[in-house]
């Protein structure tokens, strides 16, 4: 093995042993780029030096954790996706008196509130329990707070409209000078909790799972493991929604799901 790869391997092993976060099966090229970014910023000449610092300095590890978990997200990301969800997933949800939805890798919560808004518009607000999880506690706290910078609202509003929102987006938040806070009724339906897709287990009997723009950072083997975890957590006929560039095509579990909407990456667990 080439020296640098060896050092990265050992660094990831050290992070796992010391802090329990397992990045060993994340997409290797991506992980290497993120680590390299931090190595240069912190002025280490190699990853072995950086490893020493990671082991002895928890704050440094926290920084690295943020580097490794890409948190980019937005409200109604890919508006056409949400439009399609409304068309194909909502009719299914309405057949249940009570349904459960899981947002895995929810980042700062925008995806969760987007869905919450549509549930409310469809009059289903009281008939669902939403679970929102992420392995990054810092970002999870932001999701719970539901406070977003005012600068982003124009873009979010445009997305909401493109997605087929039926009211005024401003109905869903209270504005301050520099930020907005999401409406209490949206927050109350959500149970936020810490959950690591790599090391934690299945969630029970979900009707819909959203896991968007997370699997892209895993290698194929890990993707298959996590997809299996989703299959174990879904009830038969339940929906799985992935990011717009994440496909089941190259995975080992494709045969266990049917494609509902190709472009939107909406799948459904077969009833067998």
């Amino acid at each position: 093995m080439e020296n640098e790869r060896l050092e990265i391997h050992l660094l990831l092993e050290a992070i796992y042993l010391k802090y329990g976060y397992d990045f060993r099966r994340y997409a290797a090229t991506h992980t290497k780029r993120r680590l390299e970014h931090r190595r240069k910023m912190a002025d280490f000449s190699n990853f072995s030096q950086m490893q020493h610092r990671v082991i002895h300095d928890t704050d440094f590890f926290e920084t690295l954790l943020l580097d490794l978990s890409i948190n980019v997200t937005e409200m109604f990301r890919d508006p056409w996706f949400y439009k399609r969800v409304r068309e194909v997933v909502f009719p299914y949800l309405k057949t249940y008196p009570f349904a459960k939805i899981w947002h895995a890798g929810c980042s700062a919560g925008q995806e969760v509130y987007s869905m919450g808004i549509f549930l409310e518009e469809e009059g289903m607000g009281d008939r669902v329990q939403i679970y929102a999880t992420d392995f990054n506690e810092l970002i999870l706290q932001k999701a719970k707070d539901g406070i977003y910078s005012m600068d982003l609202i124009r873009e979010y509003t445009a997305n909401y409209q493109k997605a087929g929102g039926r009211r005024s987006f401003s109905d869903y938040y209270t504005a301050d000078y520099e930020s907005v806070i999401m409406k209490r009724s949206l927050k109350e339906k959500v149970l936020f909790s810490s959950h690591n897709l790599v090391t934690d287990g299945a969630f029970g009997e979900m009707n819909v799972i959203f896991c968007r723009n997370v699997l892209i950072y895993f290698n194929r083997e890990l993707q298959d493991r996590v997809l299996t975890l989703f299959l174990d957590s879904l009830c038969p006929g339940g929906f799985l929604c992935l990011g717009s560039k994440e496909s089941l095509k190259f995975s080992g579990v494709a045969h266990r799901l049917e494609i509902v909407s190709e472009r939107e990456k909406i799948y459904r667990k077969k009833r067998v």
Partner: peptide
């Protein structure tokens, strides 16, 4: 990627 497959990223 190292295994010569393509990878996408939103970083």
């Amino acid at each position: 990627e190292m295994d010569r497959a393509l990878a996408l990223s939103t970083e």
